[in-house]
């Protein structure tokens, strides 16, 4: 039985996903925190190699949904998730799925930069090490360098790879966290308000970086800033009180939304 499913999945995964096939598809997702019904029947498709932004007022469930996509909600005892979420057609809440493997595929960057209290090098090398991506020290060095380059941090830190990561500025720390996520070679990167703790200059750098990362990764970003959503994303999903109000191309959402609530939110009538 095990063998059979293994062969089937192999055949599925070797088939390269077509550009028009959604990377992530969610159907009827419900989330409860204890008694609180945090997400109500959310269905959405997220396209590969593009940036999807989740917007909406505080407490609307956008971060909760984001954390469902790599099962980070598993670490919270009182959280229960129902519904169906698939990545590349594979149900991530299937009992056979190991969240550890899932998270290697779906990386995450958090609201506040949270570098480990280790050196810059060790921060980036942490993920590849635990997943066994490098057989030799030289491979690891290469992965670290490549990740830092992709995160646009290489030139700033190449001379002090062994300085503590906590000694960097806030913006650099956040890019270090992005490098840390990239180093595992995920397919999807989830970003939970990655710029909310940063100053405008650092924010601009991170946004630029997101733009570049889009070429290789599927990116989902939660943001409070509508301008940011407009700047970095191709598609935008609007959440309100645990409901997905609408999801569409970013241009359309910001110019001609279907829903009155989206209209009001974008116009700053609530938020």
């Amino acid at each position: 039985m095990n063998n059979m499913s293994a062969t089937i999945t192999t055949t599925i995964s070797t088939k390269a996903p077509a550009m028009n096939q959604p990377k992530i598809s969610a159907r009827g997702v419900q989330v409860h925190y204890g008694d609180k019904h945090a997400l109500k029947d959310v269905s959405i498709e997220i396209h590969p190699r593009s940036v999807t932004a989740f917007i909406g007022p505080s407490g609307c469930g956008k971060s909760t949904f984001l954390r469902c996509l790599n099962r980070m909600n598993d670490t919270i005892d009182i959280c229960r998730v129902a519904g169906h979420i698939a990545i590349d057609g594979e149900d991530i809440y299937d009992p056979k799925v190991d969240p550890v493997q899932l998270r290697a595929k779906v990386g995450m960057v958090f609201q506040k930069p949270n570098p480990f209290p280790k050196t810059i090098y060790e921060n980036v090398a942490y993920g590849p090490r635990i997943h066994g991506l490098a057989a030799k020290k030289a491979d690891l060095d290469d992965i670290v360098a490549s990740a830092l380059q992709r995160a646009g941090l290489w030139n700033e830190v190449k001379d002090r790879l062994h300085a503590p990561g906590t000694g960097l500025s806030g913006g650099q720390q956040q890019r270090l966290c992005i490098a840390r996520a990239v180093a595992v070679s995920p397919e999807v990167i989830l970003m939970d308000e990655p710029c909310s703790a940063l100053d405008p200059i650092a924010t601009a750098k991170v946004e630029e970086l997101i733009h570049e990362l889009r070429e290789n990764f599927t990116i989902v970003i939660v943001t409070h800033s509508m301008q940011q959503a407009a700047r970095v994303s191709q598609r935008t999903a609007m959440f309100h009180l645990g409901n997905l109000v609408e999801v569409d191309d970013t241009d359309k959402i910001f110019t001609n939304p279907d829903d009155q609530r989206t209209q009001d939110y974008i116009m700053g009538r609530f938020g």
């Binding site: 290697a104 635990i130 966290c177 595992v184």
Partner: peptide, 14 residues
């Protein structure tokens, strides 16, 4: 801080 745990779990650490 919980953020460090999240950071590690987010990378797929056990």
């Amino acid at each position: 801080p919980q953020a460090l745990r999240d950071g590690s779990y987010g990378l797929g650490a056990t």
